[in-house]
């Protein structure tokens, strides 16, 4: 069952986390790179809410939201961005390389589109082992141009794998608008090419995403094979830090902000009488507190051991 208050809390946590990440970069407190998902929280949360504990998820370079939605500890996630020993990859991975199989989370991924093949393999093993695991593979409209996604969906269709490929159509492949990178109006229409189910939902509505994934997962568990779900959303943040967003207008962004998912779910919760203004403030404060605690945990964490930097290359 979809719980809108729980979804709201997760979306809030992701939003505050990503805002904090952008601020920490601007202050020079964390280094390297990260891609934030401000504006896309509903997709991550809607998908995760529909999955069972045994299910698996693969993510992208823009993966903090997916990971938090799946239950990541914000402190360990933040610690990875701070390059600390307590981070999910012990400082060896950074934003784009974090994995936690115990949560069924099989990685953010710095190679656009590559994780869909990996996800097909998780689904293959689920099928071989006779489990009822369903695997969701996130990718973006930019990644949809990668050949490996075509190959993976073809494999998944041939072998009837329990794989749901979720395209987060956020409008841009870094700076290239989808209109210049994707040959069709909707990535979901490509499902026809594999003989699988394709659908498009409002990616800024966590309930719509949840309901679509829940139905496809149920189908996948029963041997119905893979599906392709496009979630239409908008990347309100820049591609990564240092993106001056010169390839789009502020007018376009303001229009997108009017559709952004957090405001929408707040309006829905107040309209339904679930939360009043005071309650919303309490939830916001709680999310801010969790992010502040995550930063404090990360900053108090030890640095990784430099003497062992070359160890562990092989299992």
């Amino acid at each position: 069952m979809f719980d809108p208050t729980q979804a709201y809390d997760r979306m809030l946590l992701i939003r505050r986390f990503e805002e904090a990440v952008e601020k920490l970069f601007s202050e020079g407190r964390i280094m390297g790179t990260a891609h934030t998902c401000i504006g896309q929280e509903a997709t991550a949360v809607g998908v995760a809410a529909a999955l069972q504990p045994q299910d698996a998820l693969t993510s992208t370079h823009r993966g903090h939201g997916h990971f938090l939605a799946r239950g990541a500890d914000p402190g360990r996630l933040m610690a990875e961005l701070f390059g600390r020993a307590t981070g999910y990859s012990r400082g060896r991975g950074g934003s784009q390389m974090m994995m936690e199989p115990a949560l069924g989370f099989y990685g953010t991924n710095g190679i656009t589109g590559a994780s869909v093949a990996f996800a097909a393999g998780l689904a293959l093993q689920a099928q071989l082992a006779g489990t009822d695991r369903v695997v969701v593979a996130f990718f973006g409209d930019g990644a949809s141009s990668q050949g490996v996604i075509h190959e993976s969906l073809n494999l998944a269709a041939l072998w009837k794998l329990p794989l749901i490929a979720v395209c987060e159509s956020n409008g841009y492949a870094m700076s290239t608008p989808a209109s210049c990178g994707v040959s069709v109006d909707s990535v979901a229409t490509r499902a026809v090419a594999y003989g699988i189910t394709g659908a498009t939902v409002d990616g800024n509505d966590p309930r719509a995403v949840h309901d679509a994934i829940a139905a496809l997962a149920d189908r996948g568990r029963k041997g119905g094979g893979p599906a392709l779900l496009e979630c239409r959303t908008y990347r309100l943040s820049g591609h990564s830090r240092g993106d001056r967003r010169e390839y789009r207008t502020r007018d376009e962004e303001q229009a997108a902000w009017r559709q952004e998912p957090l405001t929408r779910i707040e309006q829905a919760l107040t309209a339904a009488g679930t939360l009043d203004a005071a309650a919303l403030e309490r939830h916001r404060a709680a999310a801010e507190r969790r992010v502040a605690e995550a930063i404090a945990f990360a900053e108090a964490s030890p640095m990784p051991d430099e003497d062992t930097v070359a160890e562990g290359v092989f299992a």
Binding site: A56, P101, Y106, A114, V116, A117, F118, A119, A120, G121, L122, A123, L124, Q125, A126, L128, A129, G147, V148, E151, S152, N154, L155, L158
Partner: peptide, 25 residues
Amino acid sequence: TRIRNTPISEPGFVGAAIGAAVAGA
């Protein structure tokens, strides 16, 4: 099932093999 023919998709089936290996195959 265990002698699994693949289409001509090296990135796809090598990637899938990696995923399957991490999951226990």
